[in-house]
């Protein structure tokens, strides 16, 4: 058998495929020669659009919000001159109807984050450690499916559970624990139940993936060296899952502070959260937008600062434990 470098006689009827026609198409080749001729050009060709996208669409709206928060009036109208001012921020301190929901939001979100962590840690640990690998997906699915359903639908389901004629009240009355229905709805209780219902997955997933990564042999090695269950947890498992705790808490905290439909539907007058206050400025006409923008900026900065600080703290703890 002989090896030839002849590629056969290509007749006139021999058609070239799409990619062949493209890669030998003069204008295309000329264009790619200009755009992609060097690694440097390829780099800019590849990166130019992502850079523009993240600066314009990801950062842009936040900067616009910041800008509007400093204006005396917005949207622009012909009979008002808009000037830069800090008045909108000053307004925040002026009235407890603003500060109280703000503090409430922070406290509420923090407490719920902690509660979610305490509930979800054993769940994640159970899934990662005590469920057989091939069945973990099934067990996870049971938790995942409800989270694919939208916020509003889940709030509605919560309303059915907690209403005066809801399943929970019927159950309690049937058990004889109460005679009249307990008003769960429009209270801190219904709001908390709803928020946990909506955010738990964001705690579970980081915890689960952190715990799943820790080889069981670590704990076994520690046991072999004489460490009891509590010591093993405190010295091995907990430190190694700090990263998961940090990201889970950050996510849940940030999501809770930004919830709107949930407090509107499940909360009551005594549980007004800051997001409702902010939204209020956008419902009414006129130049309330700058105030709403200013309040949003305050909320955003506080939330990011708190979660940033929390992450720093966790990083510090993780660093200290590893020493």
């Amino acid at each position: 058998m002989t090896y030839t470098t002849e590629t056969g006689t290509a007749g006139k009827t021999d058609r070239t495929g799409f990619w062949g026609r493209l890669s030998t198409f003069g204008p295309y080749v000329a264009l790619t020669d200009i755009l992609l001729s060097s690694p440097r050009r390829q780099f800019w060709f590849l990166l130019a659009i992502p850079i523009l996208w993240v600066f314009i669409t990801h950062l842009g709206p936040i900067l616009q919000m910041l800008n509007v928060s400093l204006l005396s009036s917005y949207p622009p109208s012909p009979n008002k001159v808009s000037v830069y001012t800090l008045e909108n921020y000053r307004k925040f301190w002026s009235d407890s109807i603003f500060i109280t929901p703000f503090i409430r939001t922070l406290v509420f979100s923090s407490v719920l984050t902690l509660t979610t962590l305490i509930i979800m840690y054993p769940v994640a640990y159970f899934l990662a450690r005590h469920v057989r690998r091939d069945r973990q997906i099934l067990f996870l699915m049971l938790l995942l499916i409800p989270f694919w359903v939208g916020e509003v639908v889940r709030i509605f389901a919560m309303m059915i559970l907690l209403g005066n004629n809801g399943a929970l009240n019927i159950l309690l009355q049937w058990l004889g624990l109460t005679e009249r229905p307990i008003p769960f709805m429009y209270t801190g209780f219904s709001l908390s139940a709803g928020i946990i219902y909506l955010t738990a997955l964001y705690m579970l997933m980081p915890l689960y993936s952190a715990l799943e990564k820790i080889p069981a042999s670590y704990s076994e090695a520690a046991a072999d060296l004489g460490a009891g269950p509590w010591t093993r947890f405190r010295r091995i498992t907990l430190p190694l899952s700090l990263e998961g705790i940090a990201s889970g808490c950050t996510l849940v905290f940030l999501i809770s502070t930004g919830m709107y439909a949930t407090p509107v539907l499940l909360g009551g007058p005594s549980t007004t959260l800051f997001s409702e206050v902010i939204a209020g400025f956008f419902h009414v006409a006129g130049d309330q937008w700058p105030v709403g923008a200013a309040f949003s900026c305050i909320m955003l900065l506080t939330a990011l600062a708190l979660s940033g600080g929390f992450n720093k703290l966790m990083g510090f703890l993780a660093g200290r434990v590893s020493k």
């Binding site: 590629t7 056969g8 006689t9 290509a10 007749g11 009827t13 021999d14 058609r15 070239t16 495929g17 990619w19 062949g20 026609r21 890669s23 030998t24």
Partner: peptide, 9 residues
């Protein structure tokens, strides 16, 4: 293909 060769070839 990228050399622009025909399918039969």
């Amino acid at each position: 293909e990228l050399k622009g060769m025909g399918k039969a070839a």
